[in-house]
């Protein structure tokens, strides 16, 4: 118990120090603005991919419409700030809540069933949301998009630094919440559903309840990611949240390892950077991308990390017990 707490404090400290250090490097210009933007975008992608991993990797329910949840969070937060003049942080939280409500109502009829129904319904849902965003012209600006979403600060020189700091801070918070949730009794119930629904049921686990919990929380986190995306980008357009965007998150999760938080973090950063790197050959991106996936599926079908976690405790010092908390800062 005490080593667990000690490890947690050390990790929390390290993450904060790393975050402040990188923020400072961006501020003084050692890390240029372009790289800072990629890192921030990676942070957003990791948040949404983590939310997808919660429902798909840990709970075992395939969802294919997380760009839709992201869109709801993004538009809801932006509209709260721009139309209702709410404070930015309140809007971000509100956007996440609105997304969670959508998640709840989609999960309710579909999670009673087992199998691929959730995948089909979320796939359709993602597209429906996109079409609604195009047609709700008064609120969303329609196909032209929503411009001039306020950032974390009005000071242009501070913007890249602060966006990075807030997005990565949110990412770390999401990691901590997910890690703690998954190591609680709720987490064990969720994982047992992935392992075997019938067995979980005969152990007295309310399968539907935990699926709903996981899916609603997943939508909440995806909505938060969307809101951060909106403030960081300053511009929203329905085509940003098409089916390919949902696929991007599935790819990050599968590549990192279904059921691995650190795997998602690593693959989120690597793939986001790769996307920018491959921008020179834009049209070939969709050739190279699946090709990388294919190679991974052939040589490492369980993803980079499988369902394991990268632990500092296993890198430094003797191998700690399985229960010892370990996360990757940044």
């Amino acid at each position: 118990m005490t080593t667990k707490l000690r490890n947690f404090i050390i990790l929390a400290g390290l993450s904060v120090i790393a975050l402040v250090a990188v923020s400072l490097l961006i501020y003084v210009g050692v890390i240029d603005e372009y790289t800072a933007q990629i890192l921030t975008l990676a942070g957003v992608n990791v948040i949404v991919a983590l939310s997808l991993n919660l429902i798909t990797g840990f709970t075992g329910q395939l969802a294919l419409g997380h760009a839709g949840f992201m869109a709801i969070g993004a538009y809801a937060a932006a509209i709260c700030v721009m139309h209702f003049h709410l404070p930015l942080f309140a809007s971000l939280i509100l956007g996440a809540f609105v997304t969670a409500i959508f998640g709840f109502f989609i999960g309710f009829p579909t999670l009673k069933l087992s199998g691929d129904y959730l995948a089909i319904v979320t796939l359709g849902f993602g597209e429906i949301i996109r079409v609604i965003m195009v047609n709700l012209k008064d609120l969303t600006g329609g196909a032209a998009g929503l411009k001039g979403i306020p950032s974390f600060t009005k000071d242009l020189t501070l913007q890249p630094t602060l966006s990075f700091t807030w997005v990565i801070a949110a990412m770390i918070l999401v990691i901590v919440v997910m890690h703690n949730l998954l190591h609680s009794s709720v987490g064990r119930a969720i994982i047992s559903i992935r392992e075997d629904e019938i067995a979980a049921n005969s152990m007295g686990i309310n399968v539907f309840y935990y699926k709903m919990l996981s899916f609603t929380l997943s939508a909440f986190i995806a909505g938060l990611g969307g809101g951060l995306y909106a403030t960081f980008f300053g511009y929203l357009n329905p085509t940003m949240f098409n089916f390919l965007k949902s696929c991007d998150f599935v790819i990050i999760v599968v590549l990192g390892g279904m059921g691995s938080i650190t795997g998602t973090v690593i693959s989120g950063f690597v793939l986001t950077y790769l996307q920018e790197f491959l921008r020179i050959m834009q049209d070939y991106r969709l050739v190279i991308y699946p090709f990388i996936l294919l190679l991974i599926m052939l040589f490492r079908p369980q993803g980079l990390m499988g369902s394991h976690e990268f632990r500092l405790t296993s890198v430094f010092g003797p191998r700690a017990k399985r229960t010892a908390g370990g996360k990757e800062g940044v």
């Binding site: 994982i191 047992s192 392992e195 075997d196 067995a199």
Partner: peptide, 13 residues
């Protein structure tokens, strides 16, 4: 309590 057919243990735990 039921012990389901085919054992159905949690293979990864």
């Amino acid at each position: 309590v039921q012990v389901p057919e085919g054992r159905r243990i949690f293979a990864n735990l």
